[in-house]
Nucleic acid binder design. Structure first.
Length: 590
RNA sequence: GUGCGUGUAGCUCAGCGGAUAGAGCGUUCGCCUCCGGAGCGAAAGGCCGAGGGUUCGAUCCCCUCCACGCACACCA
């Protein structure tokens, strides 16, 4: 179905035309003076010059044409040449009923379904998730859900960092810790054990220790480098260890992402694409797209239209090793073969902007993707502490993601202590859900591209524009609906009918809800979850005002009561859809 | 140095060509015999970083400058 603004705009354009003016002037937007009207059109002022006429004369003529339309309670021309539109209550109610009856509440979704790959998460094998991974996971998951809701066929790929020097570091550190393992016995023949030689907690200690050691101990660093090369050339012992690292690590990462309610369709990694790299590099050189420069293989990606100089994309080091860009390019080839995406979305730290420009240009230049394939990059800002600097633990270290979640869950649990008497286990599960909501909403309500200040106290507050407050609103509505049913009331789908608003607060709530399809439209186009957050808060706010001013369950007029309850149902449904789009779960009670 | 990004209320952030620039927190006043007060009503608080320009109209577009952040081939 068409969005409300589109429907109104259509009418206004017709009116412009009927009055003898260019219908293109009839652009309509939500009023920025809600005290005066609900929608506005400023086209008369834009057209004043063209027609050599005072703008208010044009607006007057258009308003006159709109006068008889039952959709409007008022269509008036004001001062310099504004066209102020107020909907008739019946028209507004009709709009809401159409929305309520629609599967996606009036959101059309994408005109034709696309195949979309979302590359997010970006975890590294053998390293615990830390705060740096939070944004990619949370934003990526939300974008993925938004794309799905738009009707697209979406694949999320965690794209693990599983092939770098870290593997060599772990192998060599393990050699020193457990020299008796068969992997380090040069005499060993036959298969290696199936059991991993370490647990996840051991593995998590091995890596940081090795990494720190390599910085001081040049000999150790050289060994690690050597081991990495051996792994990359297929050495059986190194490969066996690598498989253990991957199995242990992947299992743990999956568990951690699951607990964040972040799920990937694919668990690919850089290693998957290694076999096709040599062929790809050769192909690029053969076709003259890549060339050797200072010993390295590069692709020139500068374009004439550039105002600045974009440095060439480096795809092979002078020692022959592949790089970040190389594996990203090979991954594109791989995805083209297996998934044929119409749209690629990369969710990564905004400091990687140049890298993605280079990769995208190379992919296009080499013809790896079709010209119409969209290559998109969502660069997100840093999560800062209250001091405005990147978020750290108290002693200056990197905070593990699970500790961060635990902290915010604690904060939530404390605030919930005085509320409902929930049984212990439900309390725990609820605190967890609310905590995650606090964390995710706190993140997603900011524009992704900007840095933001992480303030657990503020995010976990149950007041104001926060995740917990949104959840509270949903839970509260559910509680009212439940109460109504427990008192014998019924509200089957065919009984639901939202009536014309009978008060200002009700009308405001109606108008707010009616914007959902447009909000979704912009959220998808801009890949901007914060638009959804904004909608949610406005809705929750409008609901609270409505709720305090209108008695619902004690309303004597039965039809009106059902109308209120139908409206509440729609509020609840829309908010629930939105929480789901953000990857937030709603508890039963809180 | 070159380029990109950011600068909006005390703090955290929306808005980004229109009429009186919004919200949350914080502050100050009101409102709990009432469907979950985790709320509602009100007040105070802004040369929208500075200066030019384009426009009937600029927080928004263009130019210059200032401040901060970030990136600039063999890390990912």
């Amino acid at each position: 179905m068409k969005t409300l603004t589109e429907k109104i705009e259509e009418k206004v354009k017709q009116a412009f035309e009927a009055a003898g003016y260019d219908p293109g002037l009839g652009h309509v937007s939500v009023s920025n003076r809600p005290d005066l009207c609900e929608f506005q059109c400023n086209g008369a002022m834009a057209g004043a010059k063209k027609y050599h006429k005072a703008p208010f004369l044009i607006a007057d003529a258009v308003a006159e044409k709109l006068a008889g339309d039952p959709a409007f309670a008022k269509a008036e021309s004001v001062k310099p040449g504004f066209l102020n539109l107020t909907l008739s209550p019946a028209f507004l109610a009709q709009e809401l009923n159409e929305m309520a009856g629609d599967e996606k509440f009036g959101y059309r979704g994408e005109d034709k379904p696309r195949r979309v790959v979302v590359d997010y998460g970006g975890a590294n094998a053998a390293k615990p998730l830390h705060v740096g991974h939070l944004r990619s996971a949370v934003i990526g998951e939300s974008i993925k859900r938004i794309e799905k809701y738009a009707g697209n066929e979406v694949t999320g790929d965690v794209h693990l960092g599983d092939w770098g020097l870290q593997m060599g570091l772990i192998i060599e550190q393990l050699r020193d810790l457990k020299p008796d393992l068969p992997y380090f016995d040069p005499e060993h023949t036959g298969p290696y054990p199936d059991e991993p030689p370490f647990s996840i907690s051991e593995l998590e200690k091995i890596y940081p220790a090795a990494s720190a050691r390599a910085k001081k101990d040049a000999a150790f660093a050289a060994r690690a480098h050597e081991a990495t090369l051996k792994l990359q050339s297929g050495d059986p012992a190194c490969t066996a260890i690598w498989h253990h690292i991957m199995n242990v690590s992947r299992k743990d990462l999956k568990k951690n992402y699951d607990s964040l309610n972040v799920h990937f369709e694919l668990w690919k990694g850089e290693s998957d694409v290694q076999p096709i790299i040599p062929g790809m590099v050769k192909d690029l050189q053969d076709r003259g797209i890549a060339h050797v420069s200072e010993g390295a293989v590069v692709v020139d990606v500068a374009q004439d239209s550039d105002k600045i100089e974009i440095p060439p994309c480096l795809i092979q080091k002078s020692d022959g090793a592949a790089l970040y860009a190389t594996s990203d390019l090979a991954t594109i080839l791989d995805r083209e073969e297996k998934l044929r995406p119409d749209r690629y979305i990369y969710v990564a730290d905004k400091r990687q902007a140049l890298h993605f420009t280079q990769v995208f240009r190379t992919a296009r230049k080499a013809g790896f993707v079709k010209p119409e394939t969209e290559l998109l990059y969502v660069g997100f800002g840093t999560m800062n502490g209250k001091d405005g600097k990147p978020f750290k633990t108290r002693d200056g270290g990197v905070m593990r993601l699970e500790n961060l979640v635990a902290d915010i869950t604690d904060a939530v649990r404390q605030k919930m202590a005085g509320s409902d008497d929930l049984p212990e286990d439900e309390m725990e599960a609820t605190a967890r859900k609310v905590g995650l909501a606090a964390l995710k909403y706190g993140d997603l309500s900011n524009q992704a591209s900007k840095d933001y200040v992480f303030d657990p106290e503020r995010f976990s507050s149950f007041e104001g524009n926060t995740g917990p407050y949104i959840l509270y609103t949903i839970v509260r509505i559910n509680s009212i609906l439940k109460r109504y049913r427990s008192e014998g009331g019924t509200l089957e789908k065919d009984e639901r009918r939202i009536g014309a608003p009978g008060s200002e607060v009700e009308k405001d709530l109606d108008l707010c809800l009616s914007r959902f399809p447009e909000v979704m439209e912009t959220a998808r186009q801009e890949l901007a979850p914060h638009r959804i957050c904004q909608f949610m808060y406005e809705t929750a706010d409008a609901f609270s005002k409505f709720y305090t001013h209108v008695k619902i369950l004690t309303e004597p007029d039965e039809a009106r009561k059902k109308s209120y309850l139908s409206l509440l149902t729609l509020v609840r449904d829309l908010l629930t859809v939105c929480t789901d789009l953000l990857g937030i779960e709603v508890p039963e009670r809180m």
